[in-house]
């Protein structure tokens, strides 16, 4: 294992994060604060508690997940797309590094940044609503697994994309709707029975449900199913990344 290389890539990517610290952190924090002001205070004060949890507190796990998904995808996709775009990828391809090491470096850095943002949002949320985390370790596990899985997914998008527009398309057209409809702002139990069933096809439901359980021990689907689904998505992403590297898709000619 070329650990120096993993570390070099990781540090390089983290340096990029810290160079743009303001926008990296300020924008998710501000947008989350806005959600709290609108949904937590303004509208939330008129909504009854959901499953015994005040609405403002209820949406915290969903909002964190929403940010984590977006951050992971955008960090990881940009991280690998940019060297492809500028041509500096030549160095990566000519270096004595395995694909696993490249992935570890890029995905690790993207996931770290998402985790940071997730924790900052959690802290921000604490300023607005009372927080209670019933299972901190499980919460941390969900955060880490989700960050890694969606950073892998972002990494795939970054390799697939052949223009800046494509980097945006998947998060915009697929992830945001899935996250909004995945129970960030409501429990799917509030939906009519048919829509409850349809919602179960949305992978994000499992992430948010499990994550919310770690806070309030309330979930739309069972915890073990949530964990299984996160693991399942991760396995799919790993398989795709392995295939990309095996075939050299969009990387080598």
């Amino acid at each position: 294992m070329n650990l120096h290389a993993v570390l070099a890539i990781y540090k390089f990517e983290m340096a990029r994060t810290f160079r743009t610290l303001g926008q990296s952190i300020a924008s998710p924090v501000i947008s989350t604060a806005l959600y709290f002001v609108v949904f937590g205070s303004a509208i939330g004060s008129r909504i009854d508690s959901v499953e015994g949890v005040s609405y403002g507190s209820f949406i915290v796990p969903g909002l964190i997940m929403l940010s984590i998904l977006n951050q992971s995808i955008s960090n990881a996709s940009f991280g690998i797309y940019f060297p492809r775009f500028t041509g500096t990828i030549y160095e990566l391809l000519s270096a004595p590094v395995s694909y696993l090491e490249v992935t570890l470096g890029y995905v690790g850095a993207a996931a770290s940044k998402s985790l940071m943002v997730g924790l900052i949002i959690l802290a921000t949320a604490g300023l607005f609503v009372p927080l209670h985390i019933a299972h901190p370790f499980l919460m941390a596990l969900f955060l880490v697994l989700t960050s890694l899985t969606f950073s892998l997914f972002g990494f795939i998008i970054g390799i697939w994309a052949d223009g800046f527009e494509k980097l945006q398309i998947i998060p915009l057209l697929i992830i945001t709707p899935l996250a909004f409809l995945g129970g960030s702002f409501y429990s799917i139990k509030m939906l009519p029975p048919l829509w409850q069933k349809i919602s179960l096809a949305n992978p994000v439901v499992y992430l948010i449900s499990g994550f919310r359980w770690s806070f309030y021990e309330k979930a739309d689907v069972s915890l073990s199913l949530s964990l299984f689904m996160v693991g399942f998505f991760m396995a799919i992403c790993i398989a795709i990344v392995a295939l990309i590297f095996k075939t050299g898709y969009r990387l080598k000619t």
Partner: peptide
Amino acid sequence: IGLVPQELTTDAFETVWNTVSFSRGLFGLP
């Protein structure tokens, strides 16, 4: 092997020192 490509492909926002040190790390050296 060290490779100097034809195109001037660089990380615009990095410093000279950092980009050269990065290369050394990428090739597995302390």
